[in-house]
Simulated scan of single mutants.
Amino acid sequence: MLILPSRRQFLTGLGAAVGVAGTTGAYGFGIEPLHRLVVTRYAPSIPAWANGPSLRIAVLADFHICEPFMPFDRVVQIVDATNALRPDLVLMLGDYPAGKVAWRKLPLADFARLVEGLRAPLGTYSILGNHDWWDDEATQLAVGGTPRVRKILEARGIPVLENDVIRLTKDGKPFWLAGLGDQEPFEHRPISIADLPGTLAKVTDDAPVLMMAHEPKIFPWVSERVALTLSGHTHGGQVRIFGRSPAIRPVAGHDLAYGHRVIDGRHIIVSGGFGVSRIPVRFGVPPEIVMVELGQSAPDATTS
């Protein structure tokens, strides 16, 4: 027999549901994106890194600087927290300006001055993301354009790798750092400037390769020559529930929304990044500094 709730029970239940929804919304809008900052650590065992050095990599993705969601005091907090981790290498994975979600945009030159304070013995390197192009109207006209944020970062001593590589050495052991051009630099136009074959062709010996690729969607086509691909872009879906990111579609049948994934023996780590885009909400995927430890024995994937 079906027992219907009384009017009082119905209204009480409705009020509770609205209260929970309101509390959840307040948290997702005002707490998680603005005030939380976690360190997510990965120590993957990667056969292709067997001859590489012991390396601690801080990965910073998707700042999307703006007020009120990523003000400069928040950037300072991220820089200080990153330096406290004492990484060997810092990698910035693109999307420095905010998108349409910004209530007030902030000067990229001031942002570059702050991230110039990042400290690592092997240096800080970066790539560009789609918003670095979309924010710069001058580069919307031709693929050959150069987004101003690239010039601003490089003026502060932070190289931007675009379909390029650099050979680095730690403890006498070499490795290659590669950076791809962005895969969707023109909004609403299916154009990619990522040159995966051309980039890897610049690797001239058998030292292991780290690949920076802003969007993870290219990963199914990254060869096993690359030991580890590092990506951002997705923000972990911004809303992540029960280990799923409903807003992010699979790529070639693979879930590349967030975290460490292994496909056919090839490894990728997708950072949830810091900022917000499209909607100013984060829930279940707090802003994070990703610390990757290669050549270590620590357990994979811990958050603090």
Rank of each mutant, 00 (worst) to 15 (best):
I152P: 04
G117E: 07
I65T: 14
P216K: 12
Y125K: 06
M1Q: 02
R240I: 03
H233P: 08
A98G: 04
G25W: 07
L141C: 12
V160Q: 00
R7L: 11
Y125P: 07
A84M: 04
Q183D: 13
V239G: 11
L122C: 01
H254R: 10
K170R: 15
R240L: 06
D62G: 13
G265I: 10
P216V: 14
R104D: 08
F283E: 07
R74K: 14
A227R: 00
A26D: 00
F111S: 00
I289L: 10
Q9H: 07
P280M: 09
L60E: 12
S6V: 04
A21S: 08
Q296A: 13
G181T: 06
E154S: 08
G265D: 10
I152D: 11
P286H: 03
H131E: 03
L2V: 13
G22I: 00
I46L: 12
L11N: 02
H233G: 14
Y27H: 08
G272A: 15
P147L: 14
D62Q: 12
L128R: 00
P286C: 02
D300K: 01
P246V: 11
R266E: 11
G99N: 01
I241L: 15
P121C: 09
I279Y: 08
S231W: 05
D206F: 06
I193C: 05
D195K: 06
V76A: 10
P208C: 05
F72L: 14
K217D: 15
P33G: 08
G22M: 00
P287Y: 03
A155T: 06
L85D: 04
G181N: 03
R56Q: 08
E32H: 01
R148P: 12
A21D: 05
F111Q: 00
L161K: 03
M212C: 12
G232K: 08
P5K: 03
I269P: 02
W134L: 05
G28H: 03
L177F: 09
P44D: 14
F283D: 09
W133T: 06
D135F: 14
E67A: 12
G236M: 06
T229A: 13
G30P: 03
S304D: 15
N163T: 13
I158G: 04
P286F: 05
V222K: 02
N130C: 09
G181K: 03
L2G: 01
I158E: 06
T229I: 06
G117D: 11
I263D: 07
V165I: 14
G232P: 08
P208M: 05
